[in-house]
Computed example of a mutant assay.
Amino acid sequence: MAVKGNSGQIRIISGLYRGRKLPVQDLEGLRPTTDRVKETLFNWLQGQTQGAKVLDCFAGAGALGFEALSRHAASLVLVEIDKNAARQLVDNLARLDAKAGHVVQADVLDWLANTPAEPADLVFIDPPFGKQLAAPTLSLLESGGWLSDGAWVYVEVEKGLDFTWPSNWRLHRELNAGQVQAKLFQREVTE
């Protein structure tokens, strides 16, 4: 991805960092989640972020992860492959003095092939459009032990993309907005 400059920003809607604006690098393919979609998602997740261990796959600008951290998530791991975007995430964590956040610069699929230190309670998946990364990411999350029982998984992909998800995930909510389709799943408790 080529760096075009440093022209954008994201806004944190609610919580500890409410109203804070964070710079976002203008990188090819980077599309931060809109405030409208973000607000809808966090209304759906009412009360689920407090104390949650959050994993933001394909973090990009970190809009979802930073919002969860602002709403009192216990920890946040932001995974981003692009070196410049990852550096911006580190800088933005420092701006917020958010010690519960950590950035991993890695390919998400390679990183999820590892064993997790602990399972996540809330996962955001917003892969680049046109790369068919949603289904393999969901599969690795489930098969690799990355999710706690009852974990919430949010998936944001291009409108019209069909993808499969694990059979023990229940579709909780979904929306279509512009070029985006979004789905929120809850992982059913396994015995």
Rank of each mutant, 00 (worst) to 15 (best):
N114E: 14
E156H: 08
A135C: 05
A98I: 06
G150D: 01
W152A: 09
L89N: 00
R87G: 12
A86T: 08
K131M: 15
L141F: 03
L140W: 03
D97H: 15
L140Y: 01
V153E: 03
E118R: 13
S139K: 15
V157S: 12
L138E: 13
N92T: 13
P136G: 05
D126R: 06
A135W: 04
V123S: 07
E142P: 12
A151Q: 06
N114R: 15
N114Q: 15
A135L: 07
W146I: 10
N114S: 15
D110H: 09
L89F: 05
A100T: 15
V153W: 03
V108A: 01
A134D: 09
T115W: 02
E118N: 13
H102K: 11
D91L: 08
V123M: 03
A85D: 00
E142K: 14
Q132C: 04
N84P: 02
R95L: 15
L141N: 09
P119L: 06
R95S: 10
N92C: 13
F124C: 08
W111M: 00
A134L: 13
T115H: 02
V123R: 04
K99R: 12
A106Y: 00
Q132V: 05
Q105N: 04
G145E: 10
A117Q: 13
G130L: 06
S139G: 09
A100P: 08
G150T: 04
P116K: 02
G101K: 09
V157R: 14
L133G: 08
D110R: 10
N92Y: 13
L140C: 00
A113P: 10
V155L: 03
P136V: 05
N84M: 10
T137R: 02
A98D: 07
D126F: 10
S148Y: 07
D107G: 01
W111R: 01
L96R: 08
A100F: 07
V90K: 14
A134G: 11
